[in-house]
Nucleic acid binder design. Structure first.
Lengths: 337, 337
DNA sequence: CCGACATATGTCAACGTTGACATCCGCTGT
DNA sequence: ACAGCGGATGTCAACGTTGACATATGTCGG
């Protein structure tokens, strides 16, 4: 018994002695005699028949009951949680979510989007890669395909988008450090500098400094995309001639890097506030104060938006902002020095 | 200009004044006059034509150039990293990975697999949900569809599978605690108790006890699937009449739970070894000793296996074990009491 | 007992693409 | 001049499914 062809409707039909159309009707709840229906179903089970969704979708011209989501990295729990939020919302409607990772590269993102489109997904959700451009999606939008961007807005395309309150959240976090007496506050941010979230959060940092009449010192702004790079960035800040007494970390990896670096350096006196919560934040010494995002809520909000669009909502593109929340645990309340 | 139909090959052909077949040839590098090719490509760009993969795949009868991966949870960085490992390996071959989450439910897993099959993926990779059964996939296997299981073996199906060295790794981790003088060691494990990784790791724990002639005390085995549940499990262990002096945590969430609980209880004297590394392990106080898995390697190994099968390898189903590595950082070397 | 009508099933074509094969053209060599 | 050839393009059918429409069979009222 070699590798055999997957059975088709016609095979099932032949087995029962009817036409493919009758099988089709059985499977689509059309009008079929009870007895026939049962024989067809029996044959379906016997042959292990599974309808070919591709052929079906092609015929009915419908889009696929799947929604494509593109995220920059699979391994980063932030995006994983976002995807989880999207999935539960989407699943509740009987739709399937298929996820792919762009590896933060515009080229991969575009080809991933192309394969999703070629698969005729019924909607597209995208966390844009750092330097991507979405002009190429204009024709899709015109053709009525719902497209929603998450965490970062689109470039070159008016479209729905759901983001965290980056600037406001950062301002609050940095202001918190200022209230506790800090005047030199380092910023450990994501890379590249052009990244939307990084720009917004840096802007919030500057807002807070401005609000307190403190100067903006470029020497206090460092960068690193992964944990180790962020740790090195932190070390550079600490070894400045006039080092910061507090750090603001611009995302989860930067927070980890800062925490790791301080721990290696044995510095428990440096105040830290991180953007985005960490699962072990409370177990650190001192426990980490954070500006918590709600990644699952970002995903869920974006999914709701997509579902509304699928239901025919044709209103203007809207930007939704998911609030952040300051959670004071200790590291952000340390006094200077 | 309303929502318009997506252009087909025929539309492009009409635009240029040739047949659809010629357009097809241009797009598939068939023999076409240079000048014709250029005019066709121009029309393709002008109309924003994108080939319909569904129709194409149906015609050529080929399976889709996509591989389906089912994981139990999107938000858990362990599975995210596994998926990342799979994706880089698969992408290197020009294949697309589509990921879905079963939410650790056998029913969802099965329907997710069904939608992948209906989309004619060319291979299936599955991290089985806790209590799933894969007999229903037998016909697919016979039909030559590569199926590889990750992290946990399949139930009711002989198939390739890639797992971590769970039992051996746990044995090593627990033996490490024993070497440092501990005789009462708590086990904080995953739930349900029937979960493969949980069983294997518990078995490794018992192996180590046996090896040292220590008794197995069921009161020392506690359980919790998420961080908070694991923290409560840890508290229960600590409040026993004859509490453990060390803890072995059976996965990343259990480790976090244990760490959080100890931190809340202000107990820095309890030794801990966790299965699976955590990004902040070294920044904890004391730094966390772990039996590190290599989730990306698990994903990569499974992907290699799938690619071999796709290349026609018809040899017997094989089980690959990815080794673990003990990383002593401090928490596992604390003395009893 | 006939026409109207409902129910069960069949026939055919079409969805967008490509494989198999046919045709058309211009060029070569003799 | 013409067979022979190779390159460019066209024609047709088929992939598996379902919509539109046709046909067969039975049921009922008058």
């Amino acid at each position: 018994m070699g590798a055999m062809r997957r059975p088709t409707m016609t095979d099932v039909a032949r087995e029962v002695g009817v036409t493919a159309k009758t099988v089709s009707r059985v499977l689509n709840d059309g009008p079929v005699a009870v007895e026939t229906r049962e024989r067809v179903l029996a044959a379906v089970r016997k042959l292990g028949y599974q309808p070919n969704l591709m052929a079906r979708n092609m015929r009915v011209g419908a889009r696929d009951a799947a929604i494509g989501l593109v995220i920059p990295e699979m391994g980063n729990p932030f995006f994983g949680t976002v995807a989880g939020g999207v999935e539960s919302a989407v699943r509740a409607r009987g739709l399937t979510l298929i996820v792919g990772s762009s590896d933060e590269a515009a080229g991969l993102e575009q080809s991933l989007i192309a394969t999703f489109l070629a698969r005729r997904v019924s909607a597209l959700m995208v966390v844009p890669a750092a330097s991507s451009d979405h002009r190429h999606l204009r024709s899709e939008r015109v053709a009525g395909l719902p497209i929603v961007f998450l965490d970062r807005p689109s470039a070159g395309l008016r479209a729905d988008c759901v983001v965290s309150a980056n600037r406001e959240g950062s301002r609050t976090g940095v202001a918190h450090l200022i209230v506790h007496g800090h005047r030199r506050i380092g910023f450990v941010g994501d890379v590249p500098a052009s990244l939307y979230t990084r720009r917004e959060r840096l802007q919030g940092y500057r807002d807070a400094l401005d609000g307190a009449g403190l100067p903006y010192d470029r020497a206090l702004v460092e960068t690193g995309h992964d944990v180790e790079a962020a740790a090195r960035a932190t070390m550079r800040l600490l070894s400045l001639a006039d080092p910061p007494t507090a750090l603001f970390a611009g995302n989860n990896l930067a927070s980890m890097g800062a925490v790791v670096a301080l721990s290696r350096a044995g510095r428990k006196d440096v105040a830290v506030v991180g953007f985005d919560d960490l699962p072990l934040a409370e177990a650190l010494d001192p426990p980490l104060t954070v500006v918590a995002q709600d990644p699952a809520a970002v995903g869920a909000a974006a999914a709701e938006m997509v579902l509304r669009r699928l239901d025919g909502d044709r209103s203007r593109a809207r930007r939704t902002t998911v609030p952040t929340r300051l959670i004071a645990r200790g590291s952000g309340e340390l006094p200077p020095r």
